[in-house]
Structures are given as C-alpha cells and as structure tokens.
C-alpha cells in the first residue's frame, strides 16, 4: 500500500476531522469510480463502491489533485474524474435526479446536490411550487451540525403548471 496520507479530511458533512486512510476508507478493491469537485470545505473526493454506495471526503487542497490521480490510478486502477461546479450565482436552471440525489444544474454545471434520503417532508404548494424540508443533513446525530443548517428549499417549477389561462396571469 501507499504511504500517502491526507490530513484534515472530513467524512461527509461531519464536523470532526480525520485522515483519508484506515478505518474510514473503503477496501481498495471495492472502489469503482472517483470524482473530484469543489465544495465549501475546499475540494471533495467522492468514491463509488459496491452496491451503488458512495463516500464523500471533504477538505482536500487543490494541490492534492495530482497526487490523488496518481494514487487512484496506481493502487485502485481508477481515473479521477472532475465534476464541474458552477459559481455564476444564478437561481434558474434544471433539476436532474442522479441516483439518490437531486442535482440543480446551471448551464449544465452542478450548483448543488440534495440527498433525497434526508428529505423529511415534501409539499406541492400552488401549481408551480415544490418545497423540500430537510432534517439531519449531517450524517451522525451525535455530532453537532457545523455552520448554518438548511431546513427547507422551495423550487418554482413552471413545468408542473398546466396551460395558463388566456392573457393575464400577472398576480399570484
């Protein structure tokens, strides 16, 4: 095995820090794919393992990218794919269901993803509005959520609406 070790890495949204080695890392032969993307806590390594499970590791530095490419290639025979993230600041785009996540895309780039297993409640309010309520976005209940906790997001979905009545639909 490699002696490479990355410190100050977060598993999922946990607020505690570990290292990308040992107990939290899946067995080598299980890794099917790997992705690299910019998140709030620097860069995320995302690995897919068997049974469509995946693990997220936040906190990698930009400079770690090339080391990870080599490591994943040499020891796991897996290519590190870069997932493009948008920073345009727009609130319109497309939603895309990707396995257990709902992704919001702006100009074909991911703005954010929502884990559907954490949706506590959903609601269709009016003809064009969908709300998703979240509980426990952090993975473990014993760990206090770091930062501000998102509890609800609402989408305006014109596609839900049946044809507008003729002419003025100015209010509401």
């Amino acid at each position: 095995m490699s002696s490479t070790q990355f410190d100050n890495i977060y598993h999922g949204l946990d607020s505690s820090v570990g290292s990308e080695r040992g107990d939290r890392c899946p067995p080598a032969d299980d890794i099917k794919w790997a992705q690299w993307l910019r998140v709030a806590r620097q860069y995320q390594l995302r690995v897919g393992v068997k049974d469509h499970q995946k693990h997220h590791f936040d906190g990698f530095a930009r400079e770690d990218h090339d080391k990870l490419v080599t490591l994943l290639k040499n020891y796991f025979s897996v290519a590190l794919e870069t997932k493009e993230i948008t920073f345009r600041g727009w609130n319109w785009g497309d939603t895309d269901f990707q396995a257990n996540d709902l992704a919001f895309l702006v100009s074909d780039r991911v703005a954010f993803e929502l884990p559907l297993q954490n949706v506590a409640n959903s609601n269709i309010a009016g003809r064009t509005e969908v709300s998703l309520e979240f509980s426990g976005l952090t993975t473990s209940k014993s760990v206090k959520p770091q930062g501000d906790e998102m509890v609800e997001i609402r989408f305006h979905v014109p596609g839900v609406q049946t044809k507008l009545k003729s002419g003025s639909a100015s209010d509401n």
Partner: peptide, 28 residues
C-alpha cells in the same frame, strides 16, 4: 422568480423564464 413582478415586466432578470427556479432557502 417569474410571475412575481406584477406591473414591472421590464425588470425580468431571467435568461429563461421556463427554467426551474430556486424560490427560497431557509436556514436555522
């Protein structure tokens, strides 16, 4: 989001009014 700007049609800040929009996000 589209449909909110009653009487101010010229202010539509959207590239594509038929897209899906984030309407609100709440934090605790």
């Amino acid at each position: 989001t589209p449909g909110q700007l009653a009487g101010k049609k010229e202010d539509t800040p959207f590239e594509n009014p038929d897209a899906t929009f984030v309407r609100s996000v709440s934090f605790r």
